[in-house]
Amino acid sequence: MILSSLCVAYAGLLALALAMDRHHEQVFARRPSARTSRLLGWAGWLGLTLSLPPTVTAWGWAIGIPAWLGLLTVAAAALVLLLPHAPRAALRLGPAALLCAPFPALLG
């Protein structure tokens, strides 16, 4: 459960970062169009929202919310460290994380 949430949170944060000019350039070496930027922003917020339910179903609200915030910290830290050093890897990790997200939930 915790891993599902982490994967979705990472993908969401990545989309949010790519919606910003500075980080879009870091990865694609060009600025995003206004439309792309807006879509990425929505996708990002959707990802963040979707990363909450797994923690809450696993732990309840009282522990689920702090756990979710902690997972966001971990996912964002990974993204922040990857973006300047390996922007391509940061990008590829996004879809990979989304693909992996359902498995921990199915396992337990």
């Binding site: 915790i2 732990w59 522990i63 702090p66 756990a67 902690g70 997972l71 910290t73 971990v74 830290a77």
Partner: peptide, 22 residues
């Protein structure tokens, strides 16, 4: 209770640890 994290299982405990490192 969050500060002391006595309730935390291993996963939560690691999240607190990473936040503390931050």
């Amino acid at each position: 209770g969050l500060h002391l994290a006595r309730f935390a299982g291993p996963g939560m405990r690691w999240l607190f640890f990473v936040s503390g490192v931050a």
